[in-house]
Every structure is written in structure tokens, then in C-alpha cells.
Design a protein around this nucleic acid. Structure first.
Lengths: 227, 227
DNA sequence: TGATTTTCTTGATATAGATCAATTTAATAT
DNA sequence: ATATTAAATTGATCTATATCAAGAAAATCA
């Protein structure tokens, strides 16, 4: 129905996203038809708090940060949407409003499916519904861990954990932090100043080398001991 | 299949639980058949970390606390399962282990559905799957708020919020806190001592009267200003 | 009912990390 | 390239809340 700004994006959504994997052909055809593609430049909002939550959003390419603003004005990073991930929960209840902000961190392609279409789709495709339940279940588990970590562990510990997770899967011990320190800080529930200081301390303990957003892990066992 | 310890419990699960509401008759009959009922005394565990996560657990009557133990040994309360609520996320992936503890706070009746049965059921009943997605979506939204609150708001603010939420829906401004202070503390990410002190302070500010676990809210607007 | 265990309260102290402020460095735009 | 703006660093404080400790109150048990 909707026409695509980037002709390949619709297919990307289908192939990249786990909830659509292992769906029967007929369902995939339907999905391809009801998906609409959008492009956001770095800094643009996929949605904002107060917007009507009326669509499931799938990141086909790029990266976006999802955060809330607390009553006292502080930001809390909720997650980073990576390529292939989607943001859905709020979109699926009727008449709900967004309570968070989603902001593109780089040029980002997004596939959207409207709430109505998606609800219909789930009813006609039990496989998809089961996939959704699984995806949400994993998100719940991950959020529970985030809550536990943020309330029980020190900043040093959370940061060490974050660095290890970020570097995991990379071939090189040297990498660039994927977020600005301000964003890392709100993700870990602290401040940029504290992040700076803790990194400096870790460097002086020979756990890593650090220059700006460049990090090289020297002693991942040592870091793991802090977690 | 499974026999019931308390003859009414199976039906309770069906009637109490939102995910089973508005299901067609035929599905309800199937559910009633695959549910098995269990009874736990106060202090007993519905499950523990490390157990195989192989069943969806529905609280038919009673109350249970779900918590994690962090690497440093501290408890983090994740949620209080009330009558009608269920614990599901981890049970739905294959071969997963429980990462949390669920402990009955009073005598509690629980209905269980095994993972296999539940997966089958979802595939045959799209309505149920959609209900699950909704329930999980709400849980995600709630967890996101918990994370944000715990990292951005002061203990005083979180406690005020907790008191207002707990008293909401009660007819009387006077009520008994439903949890021990230690449990309230781990829920709010603080310590029992701090809870005591903050309550004392609120009392001296004429926001409430407090004796042990008895609380009478005198000035809910004043409390709301702290949030 | 008294005895024992658990929870709660209150005080004294310590500290992790926030906040405020001033540079320095890096990124972006002209 | 140079100017402008945004981000990061470093230092000096400040404060909310944890921790440790000891006594009081409740709850549980025998």
C-alpha cells in the first residue's frame, strides 16, 4: 500500500527482523504489503512522548536511542535500537500515548506497521504472535536485569559490565564507544563527569587505554572482577 | 490431566486472569484441562534461580514476591505477584533457567501451565497470543518506568509514589503496608533504615501518621508534590 | 505466658557519586 | 581555515543515603 522512499527497505525489514523469521511464505507476503518505510536523519525523532502510539517501528538500518524524561527533568536511556530490532510494546494497546522518545543517532531507515494491521496480522498468523511473545519475554528479562543492576551495583561495576558487553563480539580489543558519554551516563544512571573519572581510574589501573571515545581493553579479566 | 488439590482453583485461574478473558468457549475448555493447581504456604518458593523455567505460573489466590539476587548478594525486588497476575516471560523460551526467585508471602494458590502446552495453545488460539502480547507489553512499560524512577528520583520521591500507589483504590486513607520494610526497601532500591527515617520525616511534616506498618495518609497532595 | 527470634527504629559516621565551575578538546558550520 | 558550538575533562565541594551499631518493639514459638 504505502510507497517506499528506499526501494530495498521493505525487504530488509522482513529479512532482518527475528519476529518475521520462520514465517510461512503467505504471511511474509502480507507483511511486505503492509509495511511502510521511513527515513530519519541523525537527531530526528522517530516519535516523542505524547504522540499517539499507533505503529510498530522496526529499525531496518541505523541506530536510535529510546529514552524517558523523568518528572524532575532527568533523562533515562531505556535502550538503543539496533538494526533489526523493533519498538513495539506501547504501540499495541488501543489509544495509548508514547511515554518515551526515540531519536535517530545516525541516518536510520525504519519500517512501520500500523497497530490495526499488526493486530490483524497476529490474529491470522499464530507463528508471528508466538514470535512476538518470545521477543517481549526477552525484553522483560533484559529490563529486569537492568533494574537490578542499576539499583544494586556501583557505577564502576556497571561501567565495567557495559564495556565488556560492548566489546564482546568485536574482534579487536580497541573500539570506539558507540554513544556519547552523556548517553552512556543516562543509560547507566550516572553523569558524564563520573564516567570520565571512572575511565581515567580504570586506565591508571592498567585495565584499559582511553582517549575520548576510543577505548582499548587491556585486561578484560580485571574488568570482569569489578562487575 | 493433573488433579487438583483445591477443587475450585482451576476455574479461578480462568476467571481471574486477564489473558484468558474474552477467549472463545472451546479454548477455555482446553485451558481448564491443561492447568494444574498447586498450593504454597507462606515462605515457600514457587521457583528459585537455577530451576528450569518450564511453566507459566498464575496466582489464583494469594501473593508472592519475585526478586533477583545481584552479583554482590543484594536483593532486588522485581514485582509482587497479586491474585490474577502471572509470571511468564522466562517460561516461554526453550531450555531457559529461572534467573529470579518467587516466594509466597502468604498461603497462595497457583495454577501452572507447562511450556509445551502453552506454546501449543498459543498457536491454536490467536486471541490468547494477542492477549499475551498485550500483557507483556504492559509489563515492559511498567518496568521501563520502574527503571527510570529508581535511577532518577530520590528515595523520598519513590517512597511517596509507592505510598500513593498502594493507597490508591483503597477506600480508607488508613492502611497496612502490604510488605515488610525490608521488602519495600529492596523494591525501592534502598534500605529499611532509610524507609524508617523517611516515614518519620513525612510524619513530622504532617503528610501522614505512621506506626510500624500502619500508615494513614493525611495530605496526599503534599505527598504528590514529593514525587 | 514467657522466651526467642525477627523486625523496626534511632543515632553516629562514612562515602560514592552528584553538582558546580572552569578549561581543554573535539566537532560542526561558515 | 576559522569561528562557533558542543562534548569531555578535571578540580573543589556538597549531600543523600549506605553502613555500622545498639536498643525497642513486634511477631513467633514453646
Amino acid at each position: 500500500m504505502a510507497k517506499l522512499a528506499h526501494e530495498h527497505t521493505g525487504e530488509d525489514c522482513l529479512s532482518l527482523v527475528t519476529i518475521f523469521q520462520s514465517l510461512p511464505e503467505k504471511d511474509l507476503a502480507i507483511v511486505a504489503d503492509i509495511v511502510s518505510a521511513h527515513h530519519f536523519k541523525a537527531g530526528e525523532f522517530l516519535y516523542q512522548a505524547g504522540d499517539e502510539a499507533n505503529a510498530l517501528m522496526i529499525v531496518a538500518h541505523g541506530q536510535a536511542k529510546v529514552y524517558q524524561i523523568a518528572a524532575n527533568g532527568k533523562e533515562q536511556m531505556l535502550r538503543i535500537l539496533q538494526t533489526g530490532e523493533f519498538d513495539g510494546e506501547a504501540a499495541l494497546f488501543s489509544n495509548s500515548e508514547r511515554t518515551s522518545f526515540a531519536e535517530a543517532l545516525m541516518d536510520t531507515d525504519v519500517c512501520q506497521i500500523s497497530r490495526g494491521d499488526f493486530q490483524k496480522l497476529m490474529k491470522s498468523s499464530p507463528e508471528l504472535a508466538v514470535n512476538m511473545v518470545n521477543a517481549f519475554g526477552q525484553r522483560i528479562t533484559q529490563l529486569e536485569q537492568q533494574t537490578t543492576e542499576v539499583t544494586t551495583a556501583s557505577v564502576e561495576s556497571r561501567l565495567a559490565n557495559y564495556l565488556l558487553e560492548t566489546s564482546a563480539g568485536l574482534d579487536d580489543a580497541r573500539f570506539t564507544l558507540p554513544l556519547k558519554k552523556k548517553d552512556i551516563a543516562t543509560y547507566l544512571g550516572t553523569t558524564p563527569e563520573t564516567i570520565s573519572r571512572k575511565l581515567t581510574k580504570m586506565a591508571s589501573d592498567n585495565l584499559l587505554e582511553n582517549k575520548g571515545l576510543q577505548v582499548k581493553i587491556l585486561d578484560s579479566d580485571g574488568l570482569a572482577m569489578l562487575v
